[in-house]
């Protein structure tokens, strides 16, 4: 009986902590947006973060987008050729990449490269009292530390997604046109005839929403690291980073489905 009561009590405590963390994280995000209007955003920090989130992600993104596009084209070509519709390869690859795979794969790459690093960096800043120091210097840490990262993600992700789409389509071109000898004109013209402005819009809206999710969640996990007194120090940073990456990826995928359903 006692163990059942303990179990119920643990579930209750866990639920309370989760709800409290979600509430604090929303206030945290609100404070970041609010800091946008307090003074001119720190441009130098934003540029530095764009370099980290955007520019330095380009090599890994180029490679992954090329091979994703090639793999998608390879599978689609084998399916389409059975129905004698290989001329639909270009539009199929392009729509799939622009609406779904581009934003999702780009976000996943950024989660792997940036979200984990952001959570670890902010968690260590918390451990080393750097946020206390900023507070004591009357420096708004939301404006100085969080806002540049959020803005950099909002600027970088749509661009990276567009790059992913274009390189992916080029990968499809290599498979369809160069390897399988389909007509280059059909491949390219098919894309122009089929892809609508709405498709591009959906992809870009997704990338903006994903940008907020995949930078806000790791920042919140790092910032509130000290609240979990049982997992402080290096173990705390490791625990928070793992959780932040998993939650960022899951919430991004759930949000992808919601946006796709709403904008079909």
């Amino acid at each position: 009986m006692q163990s059942i009561m303990n179990g119920v009590s643990n579930i209750g405590g866990y639920t309370r902590n989760v709800i409290s963390f979600i509430g604090m994280s929303f206030v945290f995000l609100l404070n970041i947006f609010k800091s946008l209007f307090s003074r001119i955003p720190p441009i130098r920090e934003i540029v530095r973060q764009i370099q980290f989130i955007g520019v330095k992600s380009l090599p890994v993104l180029l490679v992954s987008s090329l091979f994703t596009g090639m793999a998608v084209a390879l599978n689609l070509y084998n399916a389409l050729i059975r129905f004698g519709s290989a001329d639909l390869l270009g539009p199929s690859v392009a729509v799939g990449l622009i609406r779904e795979l581009g934003p999702v794969m780009t976000a996943l790459m950024i989660i792997a490269r940036v979200s984990s690093a952001t959570c670890a960096e902010i968690g260590i800043m918390r451990n080393e009292q750097q946020f206390d120091a900023l507070d004591c210097m009357a420096v708004n840490s939301y404006r100085y530390v969080m806002l540049p990262r959020l803005m950099a993600a909002l600027i970088s992700l749509p661009i990276l997604t567009a790059v992913f789409d274009m390189v992916g389509i080029a990968g499809g071109y290599i498979v369809g046109v160069v390897i399988h000898g389909e007509s280059a004109g059909t491949y390219i013209q098919g894309i122009f005839d089929t892809v609508t402005f709405n498709d591009v819009l959906i992809g870009q809206i997704k990338s903006l929403v994903f940008a907020v999710l995949i930078i806000w969640i790791p920042m919140a996990y790092g910032y509130f690291l000290h609240l979990n007194r049982k997992a402080a120090g290096a173990a705390g940073v490791s625990h928070a980073t793992t959780k932040a990456v998993v939650i960022s990826a899951i919430s991004m995928l759930v949000m992808n489905f919601i946006i796709s359903s709403l904008m079909l």
């Binding site: 800043m125 080393e128 009292q129 206390d132 120091a133 004591c136 009357a138």
Partner: peptide, 19 residues
Amino acid sequence: KELRKKMGVAFQGGALLSS
């Protein structure tokens, strides 16, 4: 915030921003 401008704090490990 105004009060904090009149106060300086030196933390145990320095708490310098590592970046």
